[in-house]
């Protein structure tokens, strides 16, 4: 069992995912939470590029941006503060 350099990069990116999702617990401003969610899906696309599935990487990048845009549109229609 020996790790290659791709393994270490995947570990770093997965750790970043955990930090981003933990920050979701403490952010009070919903707009900031949605922006962090966009970053989250972008990092996820990078992980799938490193895991040899480029089809899924392109789809995840596009779908994550789409979800983020829809969430922002809804946030501007409703309230921005988390109560």
């Amino acid at each position: 069992m020996h790790f290659t350099s791709a393994d270490y990069w995947i570990m770093v990116l997965l750790l970043t995912l955990v930090i981003a999702s933990l920050s979701m617990l403490f952010i009070k401003d919903l707009l900031h939470a949605v922006i962090v969610f966009g970053v989250y899906s972008l990092i996820m696309a990078l992980i799938w590029l490193l895991m040899n599935t480029p089809d899924l990487a392109i789809t995840e990048a596009a779908a994550g941006i789409c979800t983020t845009v829809l969430m922002m549109a809804v946030i501007f229609r409703t309230s921005r503060k988390e109560e």
């Binding site: 617990l25 919903l30 939470a33 969610f37 988390e82």
Partner: peptide, 11 residues
């Protein structure tokens, strides 16, 4: 644990 519906969706 979060009350807000957006937070639930993100979760």
């Amino acid at each position: 644990t979060r009350d807000n519906l957006f937070k639930k969706l993100i979760g």
